[in-house]
């Protein structure tokens, strides 16, 4: 049985401010950000589900909930970060859910499944579920929502034809954004204020960014090790690394690594999400419909 509810002695509610949330096996940890700096001495566990394997993590700034995908067995769940029980969202019909994204305006979640090779959408309680992409996917992983502009972005690390794609949030207007010089694009993130889409490739070992509207692709750092998850906050991107067992911060203005955080627990870090103190302003057509 899942070990909840908390508070428990080993878990802590999320304090105010902006944080990074990241998963290690059955734990979701948080590390506060002060400006763009990670505060290692204040890193704590926010949720502990022993024995689970949490892959993707997403944050809903409206209800201050964390959403996650877990595998073996597979499901999608959520929990309030101020304390509360695990709430099941999707319990059947998922085989290997990996990336998860929240549309905080339209109140929906999106996820990729690397076995059914689909992208699905549902309301935040798991109802009104629908497949929006079901073709030409091989190993879909990261998925990102840009609610104010109504766009989705996702990466497929298909060894034969890796690609980064985009579509509207209903799956229409699907286009390939990047396919050349890609290998294993595990990490993907979008920073709404700078309109910068960044990805971290575990095959080419390069972290790159582009403005999806302009298509101006730029290398940020080369020779990175084994990126898995990725998130953005302002000018920084943060990725999890399977080889370094670390969170790595990269400044996109200067294009280089600025700091790293090594959690006490020396094990692979999977998903990562930015838990904003407040929602960024904006609305989209789904929110008003």
């Amino acid at each position: 049985p899942p070990v909840s509810p908390f508070p428990r002695p080993d878990v802590h509610p999320l304090p105010s401010g902006t944080h990074l949330l990241f998963s290690q096996n059955g734990r979701i940890e948080h590390i506060p950000l002060e400006g763009y700096d990670m505060k290692p001495d204040q890193a704590k566990t926010v949720l502990h589900l022993p024995g689970k394997l949490i892959v993707g993590v997403a944050y809903d700034c409206v209800e201050k909930m964390v959403y996650w995908t877990e595998i073996s067995p597979s499901s999608i769940n959520k929990a309030n970060l101020q304390g509360g029980e695990t709430i099941p969202v999707i319990e059947s019909g998922v085989t290997s859910p990996e990336g998860i994204a929240v549309d905080h305006l339209g109140r929906t979640i999106f996820w990729t499944d690397s076995i059914t090779d689909q992208i699905e959408v549902a309301s935040m309680d798991g109802s009104q579920r629908r497949v929006i992409i079901n073709s030409d996917l091989v190993n879909p992983r990261a998925i990102i929502a840009d609610p104010p502009n109504g766009n989705l972005y996702w990466a497929d690390w298909d060894r034969d034809a890796p690609k980064i794609e985009t579509s509207y949030m209903d799956g229409t207007n699907r286009r390939v954004l990047v396919k050349d010089n890609l290998s294993l694009p595990n990490g993907l993130t979008y920073e709404p204020q700078s309109s910068l889409l960044c990805w971290a490739d575990a095959g080419t070992k390069i972290l790159e960014c582009m403005n999806p509207g302009r298509g101006d692709r730029r290398k940020m750092t080369e020779g990175i090790q084994y990126p898995f998850g990725m998130t953005a906050y302002g000018k920084n991107v943060y990725y999890t690394d399977w080889d370094r067992l670390a969170l790595v911060a990269v400044d996109t203005h200067v294009g280089r690594e600025t700091s790293e955080f090594l959690p006490l627990k020396r094990t692979k870090i999977y998903g990562i999400a930015t838990a904003y103190a407040q929602c960024l302003a904006g609305q989209n057509y789904c929110a008003v419909n």
């Binding site: 070990v3 509810p5 428990r8 002695p9 080993d10 096996n25 059955g26 566990t45 502990h48 022993p50 024995g51 394997l53 073996s72 627990k265 020396r266 094990t267 692979k268």
Partner: peptide, 29 residues
């Protein structure tokens, strides 16, 4: 480990490398 006050259940919080689970009974991915 830590004990959950309400239920009395004891949960390991720092399993040895490569292991996970309430009693560190499970192998990692």
């Amino acid at each position: 480990c830590s004990a959950i006050v309400q239920t009395g259940e004891v949960v390991c919080t720092n399993c040895p490398a490569g292991r996970t689970g309430v009693r560190c009974q499970k192998c990692e991915d």
